[in-house]
C-alpha cells in the first residue's frame, strides 16, 4: 500500500480504527487533541462510538465499561489528564481487561507546558495508579510506529487480558511523516467468554470483578501473567553495541537524535552504540547481553531533567557499569551534546 502523509496523532486514530477499535473516549488536552479531532468524524464514519467525556476520569471509566463488553477500545490523553486516568487504569489492570491508552507526553510536572517531553517514564512503567500492577508500555519513535504499535497494542492487550499504554510525545504527535497504514481487521465483540454483554434468560450471569477471592490460584495467576510478559514481550533495537565503548539508552523522539549522534561519533572514530527501548515495560534487559563486555558505560538520553531511565539500566546491568544521564526538558537532546557527555565518561 502506498504511503500517506499523516501526523503521529492522526496515525494513532486511523490505526485504531483499522485494528477494529469501535469505542473511543477522551478529553481534549494539547498535544493530543488531534486524536479526538480525527476520531470525532472518523469513528462515526465506521459505525463506532466517539465520546468526548466531561473529564478524563469519566473517559477512563467509559473505556473500562466498553472493554468489559468485549469491544476493542482505546483512549488518549496527556500530562495532567494522564494522572487523572490512573485510578481507572489500576481498576482495569485489576479486572484483567484488554484496552489501549495513549499518552502523548508533554513538558513538566503540574500543569507543565505543551511541548515534547519524556517525563512520564516512571509513572508509566512503575504502575502509576495505586496497587500492585504493571502495564505493558510501547514507545514509538516515528509516525509509522505510532500506527503499528496501535495494532500491536490491541494484540498484546488481548493476549494477556491487560491494559497496554503507548508512550508518545508532542513532537511525534504533531509531526507529519509518510506512513503505510495497517490493514483493516474486524473485531468480533462476542469472541470472549468473559465479556459482559447483557444476560439472556437462562444464561449463566458473567461478572467482571476487581479481585478474585474465590479463586485458589489467583496469586499464581497474577505472578505468571507478569512473568510471561517479562519473558516474551521485551522489545528493542540495537545499533552497533557489539564494539561500543559507550552505549546510549534511549527511546521515542530522543532515540532519533541518538542515531544521528552515533553516525557523527563513528566518523570521528568514537565507538558509540544505542539500545533503543521499544517496550519501556517490560524493560528490555535482554538487550544488554549483546553489548561489548568491555563497554565503559551507559548513557541514558531522554527528555527528562531527573534521568528516569537510569535506574532501570543499573538494574539491567547489575550495577556493574557506569551509568549517567543526558537529559533535557524544553529542547530535544543535541547530537553534539550527547557525544560530549559520552566522551566525558571514557
Amino acid at each position: 500500500m502506498a504511503k500517506v502523509l499523516m501526523t503521529g496523532n492522526e496515525a494513532v486514530g486511523e490505526a485504531a480504527i483499522r485494528a477494529g477499535c469501535r469505542f473511543y473516549s477522551g478529553y481534549p488536552i494539547t498535544p493530543q487533541t488531534e486524536i479526538l479531532q480525527y476520531l470525532s468524524w472518523r469513528m462515526p464514519e465506521v459505525g463506532g462510538k466517539f465520546v468526548q467525556a466531561e473529564a478524563e476520569l469519566s473517559a477512563v471509566n467509559m473505556l473500562y465499561g466498553a472493554a468489559s463488553a468485549g469491544a476493542r477500545t482505546f483512549g488518549s490523553t496527556s500530562g495532567p489528564g494522564f494522572s487523572l486516568m490512573q485510578e481507572g487504569i489500576s481498576y482495569i489492570a485489576a479486572a484483567d481487561l484488554p484496552l489501549v491508552i495513549v499518552n502523548v507526553m508533554r513538558e513538566g510536572s503540574g500543569l507543565g507546558n505543551i511541548g515534547a517531553s519524556q517525563g512520564d517514564y516512571l509513572q508509566m512503567t512503575k504502575g502509576g495508579g495505586h496497587g500492585d500492577y504493571h502495564t505493558i508500555v510501547l514507545a514509538p519513535a516515528n509516525v509509522q510506529e505510532s500506527a503499528d504499535m496501535m495494532v500491536l497494542g490491541f494484540d498484546l492487550a488481548e493476549k494477556y487480558l491487560h491494559p497496554v499504554l503507548i508512550a508518545t510525545d508532542a513532537a511525534i504527535g504533531q509531526m507529519v511523516e509518510g506512513v503505510e497504514l495497517p490493514d483493516f481487521i474486524t473485531h468480533d465483540i462476542d469472541k470472549f467468554d468473559w465479556a459482559v454483554r447483557g444476560c439472556k434468560k437462562g444464561d449463566k450471569p458473567r461478572t467482571i470483578q476487581n479481585i478474585y477471592f474465590m479463586d485458589d490460584n489467583y496469586e499464581q495467576h497474577l505472578r505468571e501473567k507478569y512473568a510471561r510478559m517479562v519473558e516474551n514481550e521485551q522489545r528493542w533495537e540495537s545499533i552497533e553495541v557489539e564494539d561500543a565503548d559507550i552505549v546510549l539508552v534511549s527511546y521515542g523522539i530522543s532515540s532519533r537524535l541518538c542515531k544521528e549522534a552515533i553516525k557523527i561519533a563513528r566518523k570521528e572514530g568514537f565507538k558509540l552504540g544505542l539500545i533503543r527501548l521499544i517496550t519501556l515495560w517490560p524493560f528490555p534487559e535482554k538487550a544488554f547481553a549483546e553489548v561489548n563486555p568491555d563497554v565503559k558505560g551507559y548513557l541514558s538520553v531522554e527528555m527528562s531533567t531527573i534521568g528516569q531511565v537510569k535506574d532501570d539500566i543499573r538494574l539491567a546491568t547489575g550495577c556493574t557499569k557506569l551509568v549517567d544521564n543526558y537529559g533535557s526538558m524544553m529542547e530535544l537532546p543535541e547530537p553534539e551534546g550527547i557525544i560530549e557527555k559520552a566522551k566525558s565518561m571514557l
Binding site: Q174, M175, V176, E177, R256, E260
Partner: peptide, 30 residues
C-alpha cells in the same frame, strides 16, 4: 520526509511557519 508545524497560536493574519526535511536517510530531529 518530515513536516513540522510552528507550534502556538496561529490564525488568519498571524504568522505561521513549518519545517520540511527531505532526505535519502532516516531523519533525526523534526
Amino acid at each position: 520526509i518530515l513536516w513540522y508545524p510552528s507550534y502556538g497560536v496561529e490564525m488568519r493574519g498571524g504568522t505561521a511557519n513549518c519545517n520540511v526535511k527531505i532526505s535519502d536517510e532516516e531523519i533525526a530531529s523534526p
